[in-house]
Design a protein around this nucleic acid. Structure first.
Length: 312
DNA sequence: CAAGCGTGGGG
DNA sequence: TCCCCAAGCTT
């Protein structure tokens, strides 16, 4: 394999979208690195199946691996097939979701299980368009399930891959806030031609971003493509552009919703309003949060001011 | 398309 | 303590 020459000093402000490394110069080292360093995660084992992959993808949307692991195991033990979950009340999915956060994902996973049972004979579809049509499945998750569960050739653009590509190919520290057409184009250009290789590349490039090319404290010393990384070769310039979008939480409705739902998750019987009132002392915000939960279908109001997780 | 949506761990 | 971050989706 030819050693990649550091591109001769490129004039500044030359975007040159074609000045990226030869794809194979990235594939080979990243795939070899993945063979040695990939984590042994349960949803990567063959016995996980497409349903296991899909469950893991829902849980991993914005939630770290270490927190997902125990919930994932319990979830699959209890609902080993989509039809098993579909037969349950949606509230049971919300309860089992525990403290993973963003509980609407639990509702959507339940909805997806129902749709799979009704429309696809209980089997997670392998067709990309059918995956995309399921609740809670967007651009990333559809590609991830098609790729990881069925070995198909799709560009998988999650936050890790986007960061790896931004650095290695584009030469910037962080990708834009929202996925751009340019990123999709780049991902397609870098996708290996062979289907099976493309699927491994997706997992490998993601793993590289998760373990080595992290958002902070990246470890270029352990990076298999450090010598080809445009960002590192240009001296790792700091992110300029607009500030990266942060998330607010303290004192927001989200925090109140979390507290309200925590009470309902623990409750075996319907909870009286007064018990919910105890979690937040500001009545206007408290009411707004509860209304929001009801509107989202995460909470079911009953007569006499009682509330519970949704039975239907 | 920017905003809203949980939670907890680490620097 | 505070701030940032973690395999996004929906409206």
């Amino acid at each position: 394999m030819t050693s990649t020459d550091a591109p001769a000093p490129v004039p500044q402000s030359a975007p040159a979208p074609d000045g990226l490394p030869e794809p194979a110069a990235l594939h080979t080292p990243v795939l070899a690195w993945f063979d040695r360093h990939a984590r042994d995660l349960p949803w990567r084992r063959p016995e996980a199946g497409a349903w296991g992959v899909m469950v893991s993808e829902f849980m991993l949307q914005q939630t770290p691996v270490v927190r997902v692991l125990p919930v994932y195991e319990q979830w699959l033990a209890r609902w080993p097939r989509p039809a098993d979950l579909a037969a349950e009340a949606p509230g049971e999915a919300v309860r089992a979701w525990g403290r993973l956060g963003y509980p609407r994902r639990a509702l959507r996973l339940h909805g997806a299980a129902v749709a799979i049972t009704e429309r696809h004979g209980g089997d997670v579809p392998s067709d990309h368009a059918q995956l995309l049509a399921l609740p809670g499945i967007g651009e990333y998750t559809a590609a991830a399930v098609a790729s990881f569960a069925y070995g198909q050739r799709y560009p998988v653009l999650d936050t890790n891959v986007r960061r790896v590509f931004a650095r290695a190919a584009t030469g910037i520290q962080y990708p834009p806030n929202a996925t751009t057409a340019a990123e999709r184009r780049l991902a397609r250009a870098l996708l290996p031609d062979d289907e099976g290789t493309a699927a491994r590349w997706a997992a490998a490039s993601m793993e590289l971003g998760a373990l080595v090319c992290t958002a902070k404290n990246e470890d270029c010393g352990r990076c298999p493509i450090a010598d080809a990384c445009a960002w590192r070769l240009s001296g790792k310039p700091a992110h300029d552009g607009p500030p990266r979008r942060g998330q607010t939480y303290a004192g927001t409705d989200r925090q109140v919703r979390g507290k309200l739902l925590a009470v309902l998750r623990e409750a075996v019987v319907p909870v009286p309003q007064a018990e919910l009132d105890a979690v937040w002392n500001e009545p206007v915000q408290r009411a707004r949060a509860l209304d929001g939960l009801v509107a989202d279908g995460l909470v079911e109001p009953l007569p006499d001011g009682l509330y519970r997780l949704p039975l239907t």
